[in-house]
Design a protein around this nucleic acid. Structure first.
Length: 593
RNA sequence: GCGGAAGUAGCUCAGUUGGUUAGAGCGUCGCCCUGUCACGGCGAAGGUCGCGGGUUCGAGCCCCGUCUUUCGCGCCA
């Protein structure tokens, strides 16, 4: 008795099935009609099989009718392809199914975007017809990789003794951090739930509750504008927390999980075994970024003394007027041509910079060419060349000012040089832990110090540091894991002392009463025996993006929203009914337009 | 909120210095074709050049406004 729809999957039949009868169901991927003989590539989730019909077959009439993306059921016999017509590029390429019957299960209207082929299509079309987009090979494969990555991570975490807990989705708004999504309460007029930006407080409460080694593939919700590497609305994290651990314990626990994950899914790429730990301040100075791409070998250095008192009056003047001014050098191996240096200079100007000073060394100009070399003279130029380890054929770019103002631009210049000079090995994954993040930063907007990152992280030096140290020099047990220039994880050892927590917030202008009110659950929990604990969260979307080599999160997400945070397929968000609003005690106050 | 880029057939795009009837490929429809796998050949249908205004004898092209999409900035503890 044959199954109603299929005896085999479309990717399944091989030479050893020749002679068998088979029943396949799937989508018509492509039709090639030669008049007398007609080929249909039949596709399902598992693969593709060539179906053949000719005028002798009772299926021929229906075969002539079918069009791309119709769903059909084919009965037929598996036979070898005639010698010379085998397709070595297809797993099923040695065989074909000679159709004796074709039943149309479902027709397709003219396609708004073709499933066959992989050209780019407008995002709104792709998102509105996401179910078609998802049929396409690359996206279909990416989504399956994502599913396997999530499954792998879940397995790996279980294997090393972590326990998966689900935390609430309807929860309280958190005053720090991103903008919340709010959900109105029907029972409590005028009150709202918030969707969690992360299960941060819940996982810490789990530790206080005596559980250990929590993890969750957790949905997180943030109402912020998106980027190519940041989805609007919702995203997933591999969230974890452990009790009685140090920062080193967390690295030792999670580094193997991540290395093994990439090792499993790297394909033809390589995974750099060395995972350095780089203090935040050092990362800024060497790479101009707190998420450096270590595949790029360029490292910057300060060369301030070579410009102090020099004939390059712009830099010399800045240095003389402000002791905090530095000059950083960005070496560009093999960049020693005027054309390249000028191109970098115009790029800098397009970034709103006055320009990008440079020296380059070439045959006949071994002492250094370019306006800066002329202005500072041969000795200083040579000193820079020696310090940076450069030679003929190389160039070096310079930025000056207060590092906190220009480091980001310097980092962008480093990235661009690496790209232009082809210094980045695209087939490698290079990881690092960035450690010792600053605890506080100065908020120009609020004219006060504010948390640089997670307010629940433990300041290094504890409450003593908060009492005695210049707050802007305090570091936190706060760390990121980066890969190829992306932040893939962020975490910290938490502050589990209520006094330290109150003091930490006090520095940012929050009273004890405000802390108790806004973080009541946590504050109360810490009164009753909180274990030292810490954890981190990996961005699942970014991990998958890196693994499949996608440059946009929409390529690895099933049903993403567009940049305006709309779901074009489902038509969300949508207007509520008057009844819904009445029950929720809400009257709309819409902007005029 | 701000800045860059884009918007021409169902889809991807071309369209010269402003000048006749806005083109191609894919797809669709019709005819032909017995070994293709991006099949091939012939033919047809399909257009408010995002929208509104302006300049001009004449605008897809120039100007102004506006909308949409996208990338970035702000934002994202």
């Amino acid at each position: 008795m044959t199954h109603a729809y299929r005896s085999h999957k479309c990717g399944e039949l091989r030479a050893n099935n020749i002679g068998q009868t088979t029943r396949l169901s799937g989508w018509v991927h492509r039709v090639r009609d030669h008049g007398g003989v007609l080929f249909i590539d039949l596709r399902d989730h598992y693969g593709m099989t060539q179906v053949v019909a000719d005028p002798d077959s009772p299926a021929f009439k229906n075969a002539e009718k079918v069009r791309s993306e119709w769903v059909i059921k084919v009965d037929g016999g598996v036979r070898a392809r005639p010698s010379g017509t085998e397709n070595q590029d297809m797993p099923t390429g040695l065989i074909e199914v000679y159709a004796t019957s074709i039943e149309v299960l479902s027709q397709s209207a003219e396609l708004p975007l073709p499933v066959f082929g992989e050209p780019d299509y407008p995002e709104d079309t792709r998102l509105k017809y996401r179910f078609l987009d998802l049929r396409r090979e690359t996206l279909h494969k990416n989504i399956m990789t994502r599913t396997k990555v999530v499954s792998h991570l879940r397995g790996a975490m279980n294997d090393i003794g972590f326990n998966e807990f689900s935390t609430p989705i309807l929860t309280a708004s958190s005053p720090e951090g991103a903008r919340d999504f709010l959900v109105p309460s029907r029972i409590h007029a005028g009150k709202f739930f918030a969707l969690p930006q992360a299960p941060q407080q819940y996982k810490q409460l789990l530790m206080v509750a005596g559980f250990d080694k929590y993890f969750q593939i957790a949905p997180c919700f943030r109402d912020e504008d998106p980027r190519a590497d940041r989805l609007p609305g919702e995203f997933y994290q591999l969230d974890l927390e452990m009790s009685f651990v140090t920062q080193d314990d967390l690295f030792a626990t999670m580094q193997p999980v991540i290395m093994q994950l990439f090792d499993t899914f790297k394909g033809t790429k390589t995974v750099r075994a060395d995972v350095p730990r780089i203090p935040h301040a050092e990362a800024i100075r060497r790479f101009g970024s707190d998420k450096p791409d270590l595949r790029n070998p360029i490292e910057m250095q300060a060369v301030t003394p070579h410009f102090a008192g020099s004939g390059f009056k712009v830099f010399a003047g800045m240095i003389a007027n402000d002791p905090k001014v530095e000059v950083w050098a960005i070496p560009a191996p093999k960049g020693g041509s005027r054309a390249f240096c000028d191109r970098m200079n115009s790029w800098a100007q397009s970034q709103g910079q006055p320009g990008l000073g440079y020296v380059f060394w070439r045959e006949g100009d071994e002492g250094g060419a370019g306006p800066i070399a002329k202005n500072i003279g041969p000795e200083r130029t040579e000193a820079i060349r020696t310090q940076m380890g450069l030679g003929v054929g190389d160039a070096c770019f310079f930025v000056a000012g207060r590092p906190e103002k220009f480091y980001k631009f310097a980092g962008d210049a480093r990235t661009l040089v690496g790209k232009e000079m082809n210094l980045v090995n695209e087939n490698e994954f290079a990881f690092a832990w960035i450690v010792d993040f600053p605890f506080y930063e100065w908020s120009e907007e609020e004219k006060r110090i504010d948390f640089a990152h997670n307010p629940f992280s433990m300041p290094q030096g504890g409450i003593d540091a908060l009492n005695k140290q210049d707050p802007l020099t305090i570091r936190a047990f706060q760390y990121d894991m980066v890969c190829n220039g992306f932040e893939i994880a962020s975490g910290s050892i938490r502050n589990h002392s209520p006094e330290t927590m109150v003091k930490a917030f006090e520095m940012t202008g929050k009273s004890k009463a405000e802390v108790e009110e806004q973080f009541g659950g946590m504050y109360r929990a810490f009164q009753y025996g909180a274990p030292p604990h810490g954890g981190m969260a990996f961005g699942v979307d970014r991990l998958v993006m890196l693994i499949v080599g996608a440059s946009n999160l929409r390529e690895i997400t099933l049903f993403p929203m567009n940049q305006q945070a709309q779901d074009l397929l489902m038509g969300a968000p949508s207007g509520p009914t008057p009844k819904q609003l009445r029950e929720l005690h809400i009257r709309l106050n819409l902007p005029e337009s």
